[in-house]
Amino acid sequence: MLNQPDRTATQGLADEDRIPVSVTVNGEAYERSVSPRLLLSDFLRHELRLTGTHVGCEHGVCGCCTIRLNGETARSCLTLAVQVDGCEIHTVESLGSKSALGPVQQAFKECHGLQCGYCTPGFLMVVTDYLENNADPDLTDAGIRTALSGNLCRCTGYQNIVAAVRRAHKIMHAG
């Protein structure tokens, strides 16, 4: 079962004080005890086995690990798991499924906004936030590129991601 405790990420930390954490991820409630030094990225990936959130630099620059924490984008590598007690988290797994892609996912597919796919979950979270949290998002090239800055992609050269943002906005507002 998905939410069975699994401690492959931190089993050696058993001698450290563990701190209980209750957190809702993608609508599902989880309760765990974690070592204080466990990064949220590792918690999501290895304790909850939500491996869609990727880890690219662990110093906050690349944006691969971006999730939404209480509705706002955040780096899961710059957050401790103990900090999210009582919080609500959304990861890429919340955006849609293979048989029913969400609008941002669909747009990335149509516009070829991904290649290796490693940075993609971070971009999807950022773009989702940009389009959901702004009543009137700036869809000029400059506006979109500023919104995307903070996420590194080494494959696409960003151009198709910019196109995907516009396409996603269109899909979301197609009624």
């Binding site: 699994d6 492959t8 990936r45 290895h46 086995r49 939500l50 491996t51 869609g52 959130t53 990727h54 880890v55 990861t91 890429v92 797994e93 955006l95 849609g96 499924s97 293979k98 892609l101 996912q105 990335f108 597919k109 149509e110 070829h112 991904l114 796919g117 490693y118 993609t120 979950p121 999807l124």
Partner: peptide, 27 residues
Amino acid sequence: EPVQRNIDDRLLTGQGHYIDDIDLPSV
């Protein structure tokens, strides 16, 4: 033709399998 990619549905939904996603018991 600009055929869309077969692989994308998996990668877009967080269902990729990069090495660190492979979860072997007692690794």
